[in-house]
Every structure is written in C-alpha cells, then in structure tokens.
C-alpha cells in the first residue's frame, strides 16, 4: 500500500478549530472525487474526534491537537487525530454509546458516530500521555479512473 498524498496539521484545542479541521480534511480528500455522502461521513467522524480532544484532553488550559492524514493509492483515507493530554483511563468504557463524563449537554455518541461513519476506528490512549484516534475510510470512485 503506497501513500499517494500526506498532510499534517496542528492547532490549539479551541472550539473554533472544529470547523477549520473539517474544512481542511474536506479539501484534502476532494481530489478523490468523493460522493456528498462520503464527504459528510468523513467530516462528521473527524468533527467528533477533534471535539473529543478539545473537550476532554486538556481540562486546565488549551493544548495542541495534531492531525495526520494520508491517502493511499487504493483510495483509503487514514486520519490520525492525536493529543498529548490527560488520556483515557478506560477506552472500552469511553467508547460505549451514551457514556459521557461531560456535564455540558454532550450526547455521549462521539465514538458511536465515528464507528458508524468510518470503515475502521482505532483508539490508543495512555493516562497522562494522550490519545490517538485513527479513522480509516475507503473512498469509492464514482467513475473508474483508469
């Protein structure tokens, strides 16, 4: 599997950057001619992961959120959303639908949405070191570009 394109972003964990990260990912995958539904899926999954980092990773003061996105030559999009924040004690529990530690009207559906809107979701986390969420999705071609 060869990487045909690659980009990296980093930004402070402030909520205005949720929209920025969606727009950036959207622009990055556009050369693959994704369908409207595929764009919506990736934007939604990225928005959930970035929002999680912004809401949970840095409770005291804003830290940095890193995005590393790759496109492979078999049209797979691999997006890593990483923080160096407090980490998640129990990843399995955090991924359960409706589980939330937030009191701010969060639905607790973040990971459920990521799982339903991507082909694959991996979460690695260490307490005190941070969390990396990896989202993968194949963009099917509307036209055969051979």
């Amino acid at each position: 599997m060869n990487i045909s394109n690659h980009m990296k972003l980093s930004f402070p964990s402030i909520s205005t950057n949720e929209g920025f990260s969606r727009a950036a990912i959207c622009a990055f995958i556009l050369p693959l001619n994704p369908t409207v539904a595929e764009v919506a899926d990736i934007k939604t999954a990225v928005s959930e992961a970035v929002t999680n980092a912004i809401v949970h990773a840095y409770p005291k003061e804003p830290g940095t959120v890193y995005i590393d996105a790759k496109i492979t030559d078999d049209r797979r999009v691999i997006i890593k959303i990483r923080d160096t924040g407090i980490g998640i004690e129990d990843v399995q529990q955090a991924m359960e639908p409706l589980f939330t530690t937030s009191t701010d009207e969060r639905a607790g559906l973040g990971f459920a949405v990521m799982q339903s809107f991507s082909d694959r979701v991996r979460v690695r986390s260490a307490v005190g070191k941070g969390t990396t969420v990896t989202l993968e999705k194949i963009i099917h071609s509307a036209y055969d570009e051979e």
Partner: peptide, 13 residues
C-alpha cells in the same frame, strides 16, 4: 448543512 453529535445533544436538551 452539517451536524455532528453536538446537534443531537442540542435536540435532546
């Protein structure tokens, strides 16, 4: 034009 699970929280609230 776009909504993530924050919109779901908004509706339920």
């Amino acid at each position: 034009s776009f909504m993530d699970s924050s919109g779901i929280g908004l509706i339920m609230g």
